[in-house]
Design a protein around this nucleic acid. Structure first.
Lengths: 346, 346
DNA sequence: ATTAGCACTCGATAAAACCGAGTGCTAACA
DNA sequence: TGTTAGCACTCGGTTTTATCGAGTGCTAAT
């Protein structure tokens, strides 16, 4: 798109800002008064006609004001939006309190999503921090009753998984211990890729008559690692979408809500965000998002990071006329906070 | 309410059945043709006037047909509904397939809720089976790195919880073992109520210099038991509610959906269901449900049971004109299936 | 007791009338 | 040449009016 004159920029900004506030198409007279340009509505009209021709704004119908197009939003987000730190500060306090006493990761993430949704009035999503390749740190076996071995598997990031393995007959304590030592010696530090057929063979041979027990434990381990590797997405406030009628009729909204419940759309979104290497905040406006059904929505995502290199994603999903300033700032602060929390906990 | 003549019963049944199908108020002429009573619409009208006076049906407005009142639904559910096994059978197959390869409780419950929602087109909820009073079965401690002890706690129903406890300095292996034996000897079979101040004192004395480590582990145990005791409610298909416009405007529906996301309403519901001792299926019509905001909805709940005495609840939440027959039958079958699955697994 | 007939009610839907915000264009002005 | 006042025009939204028809209650005949 061509470069816009400063005056056109100001007008565009005024249009977007006003539309974000009111949700109504904005007319030339409004702009004439709203800005400090001291131009008459007629002049504004001329400029608006130009802006429309350039594709930054459009009219819903002939006798209405203008609303921003996706391109218009884009310019606004990239160039015109100014920070507004003050207001965000207050919220930060609030959030702090709510996050204080939480210890388990899952609970905390849900909490974050919830608070975020509550504060922004949009739908939110968050994923647990994920490692590139998860490794087994540690494995422990215990006979828990006659026919069950409990396998406790600790993987990267101190994620702990349990597996209950059924055996035909009880193993003596020292047998279990032996097995445990054996498996640990092979598996410690191993990722799924490392556990190849050769390693399995060697282990089995060494396990002797307990080869099949080992086999079963092994598949328990694999499953545990996989489940630690599986991306969990928590959403909150999805019903906030109902508050924005411009998104469409019930039909559409309903489809959307179902999609959010289903989460595979969100998975795509997270994939996309993850691929974007720069760790900042990304704004997808309407069709820019790499998923279906989103043309009336915008998504803002952010990545947060753990020291150990694991990354998580936070996303906010709202109408195209969402308060980008607020959302971007909130996410910025939140990622900083999350970094702090996780690194403190570590 | 007074006893109704057989004919009135038949008419009431026809009205409810028809209304469930169409969602429209039903008029006298419809009934006259729909039933095999061979009565003219005029006669039906007279009977309907009576039924209205008795409070079983009502008119939304003067020149409309009748719709059932809550009392009318009640009579229908209690007395007029007939079984319809055949249709349900097919679904059972379908469900079987989906449930097959699932192993972890949580995943399975979510799955059940989802399938149920998909099959019925209503909102569904399910809780994990719960014990009256959870007891510790088993406790195991391991040094996982220099400053963390991993406590694995197995409680009733083979629910396994982990707690990572931070210690200032590493304990030798045999110290950990001692501590483990000590705590197990006290805690095995103990419920939260059993762990009183006296027991804690005795343990601490025996733990000697590790008294404060023990203390920390103990609070880990308490937390684990508590979290096992905490009722988890999984919902699915809540957005199905949007499909039933009679529930109200977006405003109302939105509030409702938020409430479902929040889950405390559901908690009340489960409480109520649990208190009802008979293990069958309960139908709450409109205001009968022990919760707010439900006057336009009906809830059907069922309890399923594990051998060991733990109970869980399944619920279906839909419009008052839900297909009670289908829902009740589905739930009946489902509880039977769940009993089988759990008892097989056990 | 049942039914045919009829006047009446009232929500839902469609058609018509009206309003006003906003536009584009023209002509005058600095 | 850029800006502005003025004006006719458009068109979605709202209100008003008209129309329709399903369904009722009541009466009188069977």
């Amino acid at each position: 798109m061509e470069q816009l004159s400063e005056r056109k920029m100001k007008i565009l900004q005024a249009i977007v800002a006003n539309y974000l506030e009111t949700g109504e198409p904005v007319g030339s007279r409004t702009i004439s008064k709203y800005t400090d340009l001291n131009l008459s509505s007629a002049t504004i009209r001329n400029e608006m006609a130009d802006l429309e021709e350039s594709g930054y704004i459009e009219q819903p119908h002939t006798s209405a004001g203008r609303i921003p197009t996706d391109a218009g939003y884009r310019v606004y987000v990239d160039q015109l939006m100014q920070e507004r730190e003050t207001e965000v500060e207050g919220m930060r306090q609030e959030r702090q309190g709510l996050l204080e006493r939480v210890d388990r990761m899952e609970v905390m993430l849900k909490q974050v999503a919830k608070v975020l949704a509550y504060n922004t009035n949009y739908a939110t999503m968050i994923t647990a921090p994920q490692f590139q390749e998860i490794r087994v740190k540690f494995l422990q076996l215990t006979m828990v009753d006659e026919d069950h071995i409990l396998a406790v598997i600790v993987v990267d990031g101190n994620v702990i998984k349990n597996q209950l393995i059924t055996v035909e007959e009880p193993l003596a304590n020292d047998e279990v211990l032996k097995l445990s030592i054996l498996m640990n010696s092979f598996l410690q530090g191993a990722s799924l890729r490392d556990i190849n057929i050769e390693m399995i063979q060697t282990m089995k041979v060494q396990a002797g008559i307990y080869a099949d027990v080992l086999d079963r434990i092994l598949s328990g381990v694999v499953e545990a690692v996989k489940s630690a590797d599986e991306r969990q997405i928590y959403t909150s406030g999805t019903t906030n979408i109902l508050k924005y009628p411009e998104i469409g009729d019930i039909e559409k909204t309903s489809v959307l809500l179902e999609a959010l419940e289903e989460k595979n759309i969100l998975n795509q979104l997270v994939d996309e965000t993850m691929n974007h290497n720069d760790n900042g905040i990304q704004v997808y406006i309407g069709d820019e998002a790499p998923v279906q059904n989103m043309k009336d929505l915008s998504v803002v995502t952010a990545t947060y990071e753990l020291q150990e290199g694991a990354k998580g994603t936070i996303g906010i999903i709202g109408p195209k006329r969402m308060d980008y300033k607020k959302v971007v700032n909130t996410l910025k602060n939140l990622t900083i906070e999350l970094d702090e929390i996780f690194n403190k906990k570590k």
